[in-house]
Design a protein around this nucleic acid. Structure first.
Lengths: 111, 111
DNA sequence: ATCAAACATTGATGAGCGTCGATGTATAGG
DNA sequence: CCTATACATCGACGCTCATCAATGTTTGAT
């Protein structure tokens, strides 16, 4: 449908281009999962800011491989960082990444 | 795995419960799509704040049924409202809903 | 009354992903 | 050396969902 001679609306600004929309959508997809939100939440609420997988499986009601999978997704998206110490791997939030997503959702930022 | 006598981390606060995590995840799922992000963006950038479907299919590069589907998803999630006038249906943003999502992503709000 | 445009609805299809069990790897302890 | 724990990886299953063509519905114009 090309632009007909009779437009129904005021001229459209394209807003976000495909690349920007894809990148933001990918970040939002990572957060758009109940398990991952709860993981982020547990890290945000943890004293010391650190939690390891073994202490998350039970409150999440998920298997260890599943929790490890979510941790990996969150880490690859930049929402958490992980550090192995002795037998355990400790995970902590990266607040800047969460803030980046919040900033991208400001209406003015959506062009 | 019950709580062993040797814990690796400081005590865990559960943070978001299942219901809260599910609700927030459902809202984020709606936004976690490039096409829907671009629709929101186009509405945010539109003069008069209104756009109808016929003016979105071409810039989005999607079929009319697909755009209608995304519009429906956005409306049912409260991100947009729609009003039929004569032959066309005009859609506009609900900024408060977008703000609600941004507010839920504040680290302090994640308990 | 007829035709065209705008939009919704309906299956159908294909890809992506959350989940698990099984297995592999590393670290600590006896 | 052997066992147990913490975690990662792999393969498979099942479900959700984005997309489309086809069709239905409403509205306006001729």
């Amino acid at each position: 449908m090309k632009s007909s001679e009779v437009t129904c609306c005021t001229p459209v600004s394209d807003g976000l281009d495909e690349r920007q929309a894809l990148e933001l959508a990918d970040l939002l997809k990572v957060l758009a999962d109940p398990a991952r939100l709860r993981i982020v939440s547990m890290l945000a609420a943890a004293e010391g800011g650190e939690v390891c997988v073994c202490d998350m499986t039970e409150p999440l009601g998920l298997s260890q491989p599943t929790v490890s999978h979510h941790i990996k997704v969150l880490r690859e998206a930049g929402f958490i960082v992980s550090e192995k110490r002795s037998k355990w791997v400790y995970h902590r939030l990266v607040p800047a990444q969460l803030e980046a997503v919040r900033g991208a959702l400001v209406i003015g930022q959506l062009v």
